[in-house]
Nucleic acid binder design. Structure first.
Length: 569
RNA sequence: GGCUAGGUAGCUCAGUUGGUUAGAGCACACGACUCAUAAUCGUGGGGUCGGGGGUUCAAAUCCCCCCCUCGCCA
């Protein structure tokens, strides 16, 4: 039995994520976790909310709530939605946890002890009215290049020129509109990533089997321009892990916190500690190679925007600490999912968000479409037409109708029990052989995290059932040889629990319904197809299930298309 | 502007280290079946593999130039 540590990139706390975010990390991670569990392996599947930083503070202010309260509420909202999508986290943590505060501070001290931190003084815009330093993009003013009045401190949206906030004419705070901005000197801790460059480079270079998307982004950061740059890991904010604390080997960091991208990945470890504190489990055997994690396989899932932090920043923290922490073994990264010819947009209300999706249809519909169209090799596109056609064809017609036709046929001819009599012939042997080949291929794709290919193979396995029934035609055979028709029905009914177990990682709810209908509790993997096809013996009773997947109508599709098109600006 | 990844049938996508008539699903046409959610199964039509040039006995696959999308960065 292997041990799999699996983490999904942690979603930011401010607001509900859209389907593109879901398919980029949490959903494929869940697919992999469910598959590995189904194969009998031990799995620790971790996710959390990323709660620190300026956007969270601003969102809380907008909602008229203290930031801690806001985050607590939004965490619950995201946790409920995750349950709705059947994301099977062993723990869904919070980066604002006590465990993460301690661990983040521990890593900072450790990096300091290893000589990997340095203090840097710089000047930044300070707003006395807001009582805080302002990040570049929270300053607006007139562009010195084109005269555009709402240019942001980092870039002018009109002429696209890169800017420095000090260049803006009449700069003002985006938060309060205050114009009494001033330059102030401030001190920060920088992680000396540059000294770890060769180590990181060698590590990335050793990962020849990683997705090209992952390694090419990492190599770009390592080699582009002047090479890997040192990075500030503190910020002038109040909401975050305090950078000045009891036992800190530095001073003068009062009122500063660690940068979210420093503490967020550490939350993977901290969330496992949260799990351990809650359950009495042992977190160290998952994360400390000196305490049992030597044989753990660690896989991370994320969208391509998160790759730099997971290939450079976080490994720099882990390697730099010089402590025996478990380093990631495989990084599965995804491209973006676009929405009907453009991007999903939170501000414009464009596209489908996770809570809305669940109001329209059960999770399985979304899970199936998103995973079978996962943006693995390139950006992918969600269209309502494609969603309707795929869901109706694959789920309702191919799988759902298969279950329906054989259970109803059997019920009408033999009653609601596995019928007795008849023998297997060449057709049954051929089906067994085909299923064996296809299931082995499916396993290979799942192991390799080839999500789309796995979905295509699973669909082919469903189709094989329909092909068999169509060829064997028990409704015709029944007229002359009821015993033989019984043998056909018996085999076809036995396909249902096999399909349930194989399909569960993609569509867990439907899988449960299928198993329940067949009154079968055994979820073991069909490694031996011939044996699995006789698991339900003659005489075993079953219940004919309701329609597994209802179809999406044209009217619904059109209505949703309009509803989620977004507000025109 | 630099870098990454792409541009393959009407649509969504596969195409391993260059090698026989370029594949799948959907859509479309025809046929079979009537157990089933007007579902299923079979057959078929359809592509100058973004454009141009080159290497090769042979290129969607390698090299050069150009065009177009997407993202990252400056």
């Amino acid at each position: 039995m292997a041990r799999h540590l699996i983490t999904s990139a942690i979603p930011y706390i401010n607001g509900i994520k859209h389907l593109g975010n879901l398919v980029g990390s949490q959903l494929p991670a869940d697919l992999f976790a469910r598959y590995q569990r189904a194969r009998g392996h031990e799995v620790m599947f971790i996710c959390a909310t990323d709660e620190h930083g300026t956007p969270a503070e601003l969102a809380a202010t907008k909602a008229g709530k203290p930031v801690a309260e806001y985050c607590a509420e939004m965490h619950e909202v995201q946790a409920r939605i995750a349950e709705g999508f059947r994301l099977s986290f062993d723990h869904f943590g919070r980066s604002s946890s006590e465990q993460n505060r301690k661990l983040t501070q521990h890593f900072a001290v450790q990096l300091h002890n290893e000589g990997l931190l340095r203090e840097v003084s710089e000047t930044q815009m300070y707003s006395p009215t807001d009582g805080r330093f302002l990040p570049d993009r929270y300053i607006e003013g007139t562009c010195p290049n084109c005269g555009f009045e709402d240019a942001r401190g980092d870039q002018c949206d009109n002429c696209t020129k890169q800017l420095d906030p000090v260049d803006l004419i009449n700069p003002r705070s985006v938060i309060s509109g205050a114009t009494d901005l001033e330059m102030r000197e401030t001190k920060h801790l920088f992680l000396r990533q540059s000294t770890l460059k060769d180590k990181l480079d060698a590590w990335i270079s050793s990962k020849a089997d990683w997705p090209l998307l992952t390694t090419s982004i990492a190599k770009k950061w390592l080699h582009d321009g002047d090479g890997l740059q040192d990075r500030g890991i503190t910020r002038d904010l109040s909401w975050g892990v305090p950078a000045q604390f009891e036992g800190a080997p530095w001073s003068g960091m009062d009122g500063k916190v660690f940068y979210v991208w420093f503490d967020a990945p550490i939350e993977y470890l901290a969330a496992t500690q949260e799990w351990a504190d809650k359950t009495g489990g042992d977190w160290a055997r998952w994360w400390r190679t000196d305490r049992g994690a030597e044989d753990v396989t660690y896989t991370q899932f994320m969208g391509k925007d998160n790759v730099p932090f997971h290939t450079i920043g976080f490994p720099a923290t882990i390697l730099g600490s010089n402590e025996p922490w478990k380093l990631v073994d495989y990084i599965k990264s995804f491209n973006y999912l676009n929405y009907d010819g453009g991007q999903f947009s939170t501000s414009r209300g464009r596209g489908v968000f996770m809570d809305q999706a669940l109001e329209l249809l059960p999770a399985d519909y979304w899970r199936w479409w998103l995973l079978s169209h996962a943006p693995e090799s390139a950006d992918a596109e969600f269209t309502w037409e494609n969603f309707q056609v795929s869901a109706n064809k694959d789920l309702a017609d191919v799988l759902g109708n298969f279950v329906s036709r054989i259970t109803k046929f059997t019920r009408s001819k033999f009653g609601e029990a596995i019928p007795e009599g008849g023998e297997w012939g060449a057709r049954e042997e051929a089906l067994t052989a085909e299923l064996t080949t296809r299931i082995r291929a499916y396993e290979g794709h799942m192991e390799a995290m080839e999500v789309r290919k796995a979905a295509a193979e699973l669909r082919a396995i469903w189709v094989a059932g329909n092909e068999y029934l169509q060829g064997a035609a028990p409704w015709t055979v029944f007229k002359t040889d009821p015993e033989q028709a019984a043998a056909i029905a018996r085999l076809a009914l036995n396909l249902i629990p096999i399909y349930a177990v194989l399909s569960a990682p993609f569509i867990p709810d439907a899988a449960e319904i299928m198993l329940k209908a067949m009154q079968h509790e055994d979820r073991s993997w069909p490694s031996d197809v011939a044996a699995a096809l006789t698991a339900l013996p003659a005489g075993h009773s079953f219940a004919t299930p309701d329609v597994l997947f209802r179809k999406i109508t044209d009217e619904e599709r059109e209505e949703w298309q309009t509803r989620f098109a977004g507000r025109r600006q």
